[in-house]
Amino acid sequence: MKKYLSILLVVTLLVSCSEYQSILKSNDPELKYNKAVEYFEKEDFMRATTLFDEVARYYRGTERSELVLNYLARSYMGQKDYFTASEYYKTYVKTYPKGKFIIEARYMVGYCYYLDSPDARLDQTATHDAIRSFQEFLDFHPESERVPQVNKLLDELMNKLAYKELLTAKLYYNLGNYLGNNYLSAVIVAQNALLNYPSNEYREEFSYIILQSKYQQAVQSFEDKKIERFRDTIDEYYNYTNEFPEGKYRKEADKILADSRRTVKD
């Protein structure tokens, strides 16, 4: 039985390939278009893409051109080729700014970039492109039912950028005074992250890194700067505890405060 099933499968594949090759050689754009739609509906996106690409030139300037362009973008999405899909969606937005798929196309431009957004440790060009595209979507379609989803994805993307800054701030802190005052760099990175991503989910971590860094600067300062920097540390302690009175670093922060007060009193 298995032998007959294997033979049947091979025959089916051969017939399918033969049919596809025949369609490719055809000069009938209508046949190619209909078969492309058929392949698309069967999720055979590679064959669909090839055929849609071939008929795109024939239908350029006609009503069907809009459909073909939309199918091409969706076919590349089906292949998980998000970069190419985004290019086709952008072409659609530019060519058919009032087209019947315009809301979907604008959303998908951002979503393609979102799917291409890598780990926070890597280059975040795609993340920035996704944020820009989603913000454009909100500007053009503020009443769309996709708005809640777009806002959710924007929060996720912003948090990724914030996390990248958190990793950088921690790196500077861990470097300490190696080849320069890296504590100051940690403070600057963390403060900028709080300004640029005010609603990020790492606010407490940034605030505590600022406190730690200012404390270490004070501890390792020359005598003529110690008092001033410990006072700055005390101010930073209250910034941290006012926002996070039950913060997870509260015990460590209290120790920093106690040591800073002793130094200032002495």
Rank of each mutant, 00 (worst) to 15 (best):
D259P: 00
T50V: 11
I7S: 08
L8K: 12
S133I: 02
Q79A: 02
K164V: 10
L67W: 11
L184T: 08
F83S: 08
L24W: 06
F101M: 04
I103W: 02
P29H: 06
A186H: 03
I103D: 14
E41Q: 13
E252A: 10
K164A: 15
R121I: 02
S18T: 11
F230H: 06
S260W: 08
L184Y: 14
E87I: 06
L67A: 12
A258Q: 12
E38A: 09
G176P: 11
E243H: 15
P118N: 03
N27M: 01
P118M: 05
D123T: 10
Y89P: 00
I210C: 04
V187N: 01
F40A: 01
K25H: 09
K42P: 04
E38L: 08
E156D: 15
T127W: 03
E205P: 07
A253M: 03
G99L: 09
Y96W: 04
R57D: 15
D129Y: 11
A258R: 13
L175C: 03
R231E: 15
S75T: 02
F230W: 07
L195I: 09
N200M: 06
A56I: 06
D44N: 14
L184S: 12
L166D: 10
Y240A: 02
T168N: 12
V189S: 08
E136R: 11
S16D: 12
Y163R: 01
K3A: 14
M158W: 14
F134H: 02
L69V: 06
P198K: 08
Y89T: 00
L257F: 10
N174A: 06
H128N: 13
T84N: 03
L31K: 10
L175S: 08
R64A: 02
K2H: 11
G78K: 02
T127Q: 03
A186E: 00
Y172V: 02
D129M: 09
E204R: 00
V55G: 04
K248L: 09
K170E: 14
D155T: 12
E223K: 05
Q135H: 13
D235P: 13
G180S: 01
S16Q: 13
Y71I: 01
Q191Y: 07
E43H: 13
K32P: 04
E63V: 06
R231Y: 13
E243F: 15
S221K: 00
E54M: 05
Q149F: 12
R64M: 05
T233W: 05
I102C: 03
L9F: 15
V264Y: 05
Q135K: 15
A253H: 08
D266G: 11
Y82A: 05
M158D: 15
A218W: 10
E136N: 14
V187T: 06
M46N: 13
N181E: 07
L31W: 10
P245R: 04
K2I: 11
L67S: 15
H128K: 13
K35C: 09
S213W: 07
L161A: 07
R132K: 14
N196T: 08
K226W: 07
T62L: 05
T168C: 07
K152T: 12
T233H: 04
S16R: 10
E136C: 00
A193Y: 06
F230V: 01
D224K: 12
R262T: 13
L67C: 03
L14A: 14
E246R: 05
